[in-house]
């Protein structure tokens, strides 16, 4: 009975369906970037007044800011150390060990490592301030004291080390969760086959588990590198970026310039710089890690 041919052109519909997403993306993602770009080329300060449009901020960032090279260096050390030692290294170790022990024990330990991620950042920050407290009452000094070691003041003497460890303890759980599920998805027959083929524990780890972990590793590296570059809440809470600027990473530097020094426009320009660096680093990693493969067909045969 229905003989009407289907209508070919319905241009209004797709737009209608896309509208919610477009609105959300515009308001929360695109608009802030545009506003940031505009502010970066003004002289806006704490009074929010724009008197002129200028390239001053960009020039200052590229040449005249003598702190910036050190901040970049700090950021590089902080991101690479946290990423490779904790977010990937510790995460992988946790995934491998918690899947190797009996399931209930493994789940318990994974839960334990997820706790810092579940607790509020402020609480976690305060906890680390107590841990690193320079007085004999700080946790590290209590332990060190019992062992007869001199008092340590990590926040003052090794601020970068402190923020790397503090961030790493939170960050490790991300890779742990993802890699745990990856290890779980390795077919049991593959382990059996490797054992029968003559592989010992280490060879099984090396030839069966590690290859399976590579694809998620690419994703974790890119994702966590970006995340480490742009977040600063733990650093702000634990060391405030100090002493002076010793533990100030780029993202925190943006914050401090904008909201401590009141140089909103310069902060906006710095933020723009961070965005450029973030995109560059991501593209570089994408290229190097062959991320395209990760979006290809699954590497694990599922039957």
């Amino acid at each position: 009975m229905i003989s009407q041919p289907p209508r070919r052109h319905r241009p209004a519909r797709p737009l209608l369906y896309l509208m919610p997403a477009i609105i959300v993306l515009s308001v929360f993602f695109i608009a802030p970037i545009l506003i940031d770009i505009v502010i970066a080329f003004t002289n806006m300060g704490v009074n929010l007044k724009v008197e002129k449009f200028t390239f001053d901020n960009v020039l200052r960032m590229l040449g005249r800011d003598s702190r910036l090279p050190m901040v970049l260096m700090t950021t590089f050390i902080y991101v690479t150390a946290t990423l490779f030692l904790f977010n990937i290294g510790l995460g992988a170790i946790l995934a491998v060990t918690t899947t190797a022990v009996p399931e209930r024990l493994g789940a318990f330990f994974r839960g334990l490592w997820l706790l810092p991620r579940m607790s509020p950042a402020v609480l976690y920050g305060v906890l680390w301030i107590w841990v690193a407290d320079p007085t004999p009452y700080g946790l590290i000094n209590q332990i060190g004291g019992a062992l007869g070691l001199p008092l340590l003041n990590l926040r003052n003497d090794q601020p970068l080390l402190l923020i790397v460890i503090a961030n790493g303890m939170v960050g490790a759980s991300f890779a742990m969760v993802i890699m745990t599920s990856t290890i779980r998805s390795i077919p049991a027959h593959l382990f059996s086959a490797a054992r029968i083929d003559g592989a010992g524990e280490w060879s099984v780890l090396r030839h069966v588990v590690l290859p399976a972990l590579l694809p998620p590793l690419r994703f974790i590296t890119i994702y966590q590198a970006l995340s480490l570059m742009t977040t600063y809440e733990y650093i702000l809470l634990i060391t405030r970026g100090g002493p002076v600027y010793d533990s100030t990473t780029y993202a925190l530097y943006v914050y401090r310039r904008a909201f401590e020094s009141g140089a909103y426009a310069y902060g906006a320009a710095l933020a723009l710089g961070l965005m450029v660096i973030g995109v560059a680093v991501t593209l570089l990693q994408w290229r190097m890690a062959g991320m395209k493969q990760s979006f290809a067909a699954p590497k694990i045969e599922v039957l």
Partner: peptide, 18 residues
């Protein structure tokens, strides 16, 4: 298992994908 010198073919073949 590795010292028994047996060869096995699994239903899923269990080839190393990489």
């Amino acid at each position: 298992a590795r010292d028994r010198n047996v060869g096995i073919v699994f239903q899923s073949y269990a080839l190393y994908p990489h």
